[in-house]
Design a protein around this nucleic acid. Sequence first.
DNA 1: ATTAGGG
DNA 2: CCCTAAT
Length: 666
Amino acid sequence: MVKRLDYGFRGFQVPPTARRPRSTRRRGHSKKSPEDGQACAFELLASLAGKLLQESESSASSNAIEGNHHHAFSHSVVEKERQDEVRPLMAKVVHNGSCAESIFTTEMESQKSSQKCLEHAETDCVLECVSVNNSCNSECWEKIEAHVNSKSIRWENKFVHNSNRLVEIPEDVKESCDANIKSGFRREPEASNSGFKESTLDNKFSLKDPVELCINSPALADSNSDVRSPFCGELFPKASLSRHGNNNRLGFRDDDEKFLQCNGVRTKSKAFSRPPRRIACRRIRQMLTSKHWKVVPNLKDYGHSRTDEGVKPLYRKRKSCYSFERSRHSTLFKRRKFFRRSIVITSDGGLSSDSVSNSPNKGMDVDNSNSSAKLHVSKDSHVKFSIKSFRIPQLYIEVPRTATVGSLKRTVNEALMAMLGGGVHVGVLLQGKKVRDDKRTLRQTGISCEENLNKLGFLLEPSSLQASPAVCVGEPSRFKTSQPTRSPEALVLDSGITDALQDSSLLTNTGNLVESNHDSTSFSTDIIADKTTTDARALVTVPTSSTEPLAVVPAGQKTRPSEFVQRRIRRPFSVSEVDALVEAVEELGTGRWRDVKFRAFENADHRTYVDLKDKWKTLVHTAKIGPQQRRGEPVPQELLDRVLAAHAYWSNHQAKQHGNVPKLEP
DNA sequence: ATTAGGG
DNA sequence: CCCTAAT
């Protein structure tokens, strides 16, 4: 039968004239303003999470955890493990069509908990055990240490390297430790010959695949950063979490970088942004991008060695997030991309309008320890700061046990980058408290007092605005209602973390400082290097010299970091996405990608209309070649047939507009 | 900002 | 996926 061309391939009501003038059309970006009413699942989840955690913690002492958390969730599962063991709590929150899920692990702070630590201390699994037992406090640690020492436990089998602690788990404790491997990661120059040999974890762990690593975690309220917090869509493979709960685990990723289908949930942490913070963030950026400053990357520390073939930065912010002063700040963007990876620490000159003077390499006293920030007040009334290190909290990663250490590093790096992707906000801590008033002078704040020498701390927090770009992926709009999720998101970090971290430090160097602003799960800022103060949650160790990596120097004319733009992470289209695309094209034709985008991928910020166009191109190609030649997730032949049909139809349609004769519809 | 195509 | 030219 002959189709009326005006109605599209499938006769849908899509009058050609329906196209609004560009000026009135919606912007290509699907992002909504932070103010728009749509509730943010993340936020919701975050609050619930906090509540949950509090509850569990408070009830833990009375051994009455069970059954206390059901009410608050549409779906809640409390999987009880062996008495006294970790109890994973799975919470799923559904709100306005969006859902977010997260898994929380609570533990009983019972003696047995400590007992367990000790028990494991007899093996080479101390670290892991600590991870298992969130409640393992310093006291517990001391016991462990004492125990370890008294037992003269052998550590040779441990796969340890400085802060990179990948521990080999003895056969007899593999089971109990399972996925709770505590590891320390340290950002270090790629070139550093740390002697940390790349090795396959395969033989090191006997864990259920995949291995999940929880890197530090201030408060539950977050995402992988960072993984930053709550998640949406499908959860991790049950198998991986069912038995052995992890620490607060909010993110995940699968090896194929498939995406997590996050129904209707915006990845962007719009809900987390707060005006003040935003302003501060902007301020920082301005400062960084100001003509007076330039960031000089320490290439060695870049983390992306050319020799590593598979390095695929995945956060790379881009236009896909249509929003954001794209054209106008394209240049700035590139810079940001660069900054994103730079944790600027010190420099000489002024760091703030208060004309604070930072001087890192001045051989300042960096004595002992915990406090990574020190200051000296010189006679010239200038205060010099030396920031020793920063710590990145809360990164949740999941990798197959067959992953190599190298890939693990990359993953961590990616997560890190994603977390910092949106830029950072610098906070100042004094006596563990945030100094919020930017107007006050150092003197007024007491920062210039010698007494506060070791009580100063700096923290970097993710900019909630565009933090973690690649976390939750939206589903094609047509799938707004729940649709079974097939593949977990590639990167686990999630803007959600942003929220969690909102008030907790993302990066902190406070030694004896304690973030006292965050209620729930306040995390210890103890420097892990000091075992006696190790906090189970602080899995990331960023010992000493962390300032080396990057430095800010007075603007020069050399460095041209903008060349470090990375390629976006590859995200194969899922069948459902292809289906959505095909349907949209059938209706709209092949020359209206922008419309297709809105029609079927409005929520998938990572799919640009160009992506869709490209995908269609490849789909047409795929449909033409033999099934054996196709690669990747197989696309149902039925869909390919439709692709071909639609392609033919619209080709003719277009041709017809040029005077050719329309064709019959298949 | 979009579209169309080559790389 | 990226990049560009042309709209």
